[in-house]
Structure formats: structure tokens, C-alpha cells
Design a protein around this nucleic acid. Structure first.
Lengths: 238, 238
DNA sequence: ACAAAAGTGTTGTCTGTACACCCATGC
DNA sequence: GCATGGGTGTACAGACAACACTTTTGT
């Protein structure tokens, strides 16, 4: 009836009896090159798995939160801050890392692919891979990538996070290409335009993009204020 | 250009330089009493937080995977195995547990409320709480519960996991009540019946439930085979 | 006979989808 | 003047939401 009968009281000191673990953060970084959805992998510079492709990652430090750690690692490797980032899942199989018992918390991040400079690319031996052509990755990283892609698809259907993958201003065609890449499908131009504009989170600029067509297509920007009004419940985007 | 230039090689031994953490598992256990969606909390039997309401939890052991740990803890506390369980999120704020730096992986689980016996209830000082009347919980457990409820709502819209909250055979009214409780809404009886039967994962029995009405209402059972055919993509349930 | 819950169909509205032509411009 | 991608409207079909009466049976 009372707790004392069965479960012995324990003091804070007794936390010490429990096992401790190395905690890693691994980041699936998505980018979009205008045609394909890409992920960023690095050639691993240390054992185990030296020379193999791997997600960007690092170890959590004692004095930082797990979320902070992910931000720090993303920042270290991309030079970017305020990256859109979301926790994916925690991977804790006993043998997932041959180098030791490491529990990894996977995050996925969305960046504008042009923000990631060549210097950092070379410095970290990083490379963008088409998501349809993911190379062999160490440990359980491929599982992480697969899961991340699924989550991105789910999320992007109801939340306009996809904009994080595009430049500040973009055309409706670029946005459509992005959704087509994420869902590996084709979308009718008219239906897409109507739906996305009806949501009311895009502002049309006077300016046109003139690279990819003679007529030129209008730039739009994402309207964060209008977005915030709608965000809470999620909106139907696709 | 090559990894060696910038990043020094590291040996496995160097994993040792990184910090280690206590890893906990906390479980949000949902149940349904026919009217309300409930969650199971226990009165904590040790410090910190002795005597306060808390989620069921425990520490991960070195020789087990995180998922295994969650199953073990659920089994210890409920006596049940093969519980429907899903990882929710990892909580890793530095100060989340005043007893030490503990990173917690939250799982949510669905059980048939009648499977959880009185003895275990007393043994662990556990109690079912209406989800609309969650008591104060230790640490960040309330955040976990809130998130778990949101995830349950999302998940249940496309996957028939709700059946895990019901007995083997149930009436359409019970099933409807469950959905009404999960979404805190009311549903039209005719629309609900039509939709759920159209999906084709329920089998009608000849038997009637006679407790709650004079006419009696037919029992149905969940058809796992039919379900598996549809599962992959998820189905629209609500 | 009546109270209490079970069961069952139809209609209007909305949402999604399919589909084709003209427009503006650079070459 | 023609080739290229940009922009726009309509019609049909399926999904969803609103709505009320009859059935069964225990008391």
C-alpha cells in the first residue's frame, strides 16, 4: 500500500550505482540544389570507420544540453547558426558502434545549400549526396538517413519548414521542384500554385528571376508573420 | 583536401576522453477506461522527488540496448510483455534532474487498462490519471506527457494502434469513445461507423455486449492480417 | 408501454485532381 | 518569328460533414 513496503528508499548518491554512457549527436543535414534533395556526409577522419562516409557528429559534453550539443556540432561543421534542426530519434543498440558503447541522438537539419561554403567542405572532407544515391555509411547511419527522410516528408506536409532549404527569395517553380524532390513525385503546376498561394504565407516580390527562362518568374518570400498565425495547428501544405 | 591535413587521426582509445552520462528511460503509459484517456503515474519512492508523482522509469544498463531497457522497465512495472511502445524523444537539458546529469529517453506505451492488475498498482504506488487532470509531475515529466499525447493523436490518425488500448473484442461504440477521448471531440456515430468499417480491418463477431444497453451491440475484433496489407503506407483513419 | 442505446442513408459542400492554352521574352 | 518556361481557370469526382428516425429489449 505504501511505497516503503516494496521499494527501498534511495538517496541521490545511489544514482552512482548506475551505468554511464557515451552520448553522441549525429546530424542528417539536408540541402536542395534546385533539382535533387541532398544530404551532407563526411569522410571520417578517425577510427573506427576511418575513410568511410559518415554523418556529421560529435560527442555531447557534460556541461551542455543535448540540443545545445547538436547546435554546437552543426555550427562547427557548417559555420552556420540558427539552423533549422529537429530531433529525430535516439539510437541505442548495444553494438551500434564498434568503438564502444555509444548512444547516439540523431538530429536532422535543413540548410540552404549555397550557404555551405567550399572551404568548410574541403576542410571536413564533406560531400553532398543525392538522396537516391546514398553511399555506404558507417554503423547505423543509413538507418538514420532513411528515417530522417521519412520524417522530413511527414513534417513538410503540414509545416512550411521546406523554406529553410531555399534561398531567401525563390520562385514558385523552385518551391515546386523542392516538393517534387522531397516526395519523389511530380505535381501539377496549376494545382500547386493555387494551393500554396491560398495558404497565404508567401509574398510576391516585384523582382523576377531571369536565369532559367526568358520570360522570367517572380520571386516570392516566405512571410514569417503570417506563418506564425497559422503555425500552431499545422496547415495542410501538400 | 585530405582528411589528414586538418583532422588528426584518433584511436578508439580516444573515445575515453569524452564525457559519460546516466541514461534513463521514462514511460508514458496510456490506458482507456471506456470514457477517458488515462495515463499511469507512480508515487516516487526515492529522492530526488520522493513522494511526488512521476512517470515510470529506470536506468539503462550497460549490457542492454535502449529499446530493450524500455521493454524491461515496462515489463517490471506492469507485468506485461509485448506492449505497444514507441520512442517519443530524448530529453537532455543539463538541469532536468536535480539528482544529477541524467539524459532521459521517453517512450510512450499503450496498454489495455484492465490488464494492469491491482496488486502491481499497489506494489508500485501507481495510479491512473485522467489526461485532462494530470497532477504535478517531477522534473520535465509533464512536458513528456504533453508531447506524448500530441504524438498519440498524430499517430492514431493514420495507424490503428488505438486497438492496443482496448480489449480483444470491443464494440464500435467503445472504439468511437476511444477516438473521442484521444481527440477530445465528439464524432458522428454514422460517419464514424461507415468510415471505420470501410477501412476493412474489423471483423464482426456474432456475439453481443449486453452490459451497456438493452439491445446490445455487436463485438468486433481487429483483423491483423488485413491490417498488415494496409499498414505500410499508413491509412486514413480519422 | 417506455426508456435507452444500437443501428442505419441521403444530401450538400468542400477538396483534390486532371487537364490545355496564351503570355512574355531572348535569341 | 520561334523556342522556352511562366502563368492561369474549369469541370468532374471523391471525401467529408450534417442530419433523424426505426429497432431491440429489459424493466
Amino acid at each position: 500500500m505504501k511505497a516503503e513496503i516494496v521499494t527501498p528508499k534511495k538517496s541521490i548518491a545511489e544514482y552512482k550505482q548506475y551505468d554511464k554512457f557515451l552520448l553522441a549527436v549525429d546530424c542528417i543535414i539536408f540541402g536542395f540544389d534546385g533539382e535533387q534533395l541532398k544530404a551532407l556526409f563526411i569522410k571520417r577522419a578517425f577510427e573506427p570507420g576511418l575513410g568511410k562516409w559518415s554523418l556529421m557528429g560529435g560527442f555531447v559534453k557534460h556541461e551542455e544540453g543535448v540540443e545545445e550539443a547538436a547546435q554546437r556540432i552543426l555550427n562547427q561543421l557548417t559555420g552556420l547558426s540558427n539552423i533549422y534542426m529537429e530531433q529525430l530519434s535516439c539510437f541505442g543498440e548495444v553494438d551500434r558502434d564498434p568503438g564502444g558503447r555509444v548512444v547516439s541522438i540523431a538530429y536532422f537539419a535543413l540548410i540552404n545549400i549555397t550557404d555551405y561554403g567550399d572551404e568548410l567542405m574541403k576542410e571536413h572532407n564533406a560531400k553532398w549526396f543525392d538522396l537516391k544515391k546514398v553511399p555506404n555509411l558507417i554503423f547505423d547511419h543509413k538507418k538514420m538517413v532513411t528515417l530522417a527522410k521519412e520524417r522530413l516528408q511527414q513534417k513538410v506536409a503540414n509545416h512550411p519548414i521546406g523554406f529553410a532549404l531555399l534561398p531567401y527569395k525563390f520562385t514558385l517553380r523552385q518551391l515546386q521542384s523542392l516538393y517534387e524532390a522531397i516526395y519523389e513525385t511530380t505535381i501539377d503546376k496549376r494545382n500547386f500554385t493555387r494551393k500554396i498561394l491560398d495558404i497565404g504565407i508567401l509574398n510576391k516580390l516585384d523582382e523576377k528571376e531571369k536565369e532559367s527562362s526568358k520570360k522570367g518568374s517572380f520571386y516570392y518570400v516566405f512571410d514569417e508573420k503570417k506563418y506564425r498565425q497559422l503555425d500552431k495547428e499545422g496547415m495542410k501544405l501538400i
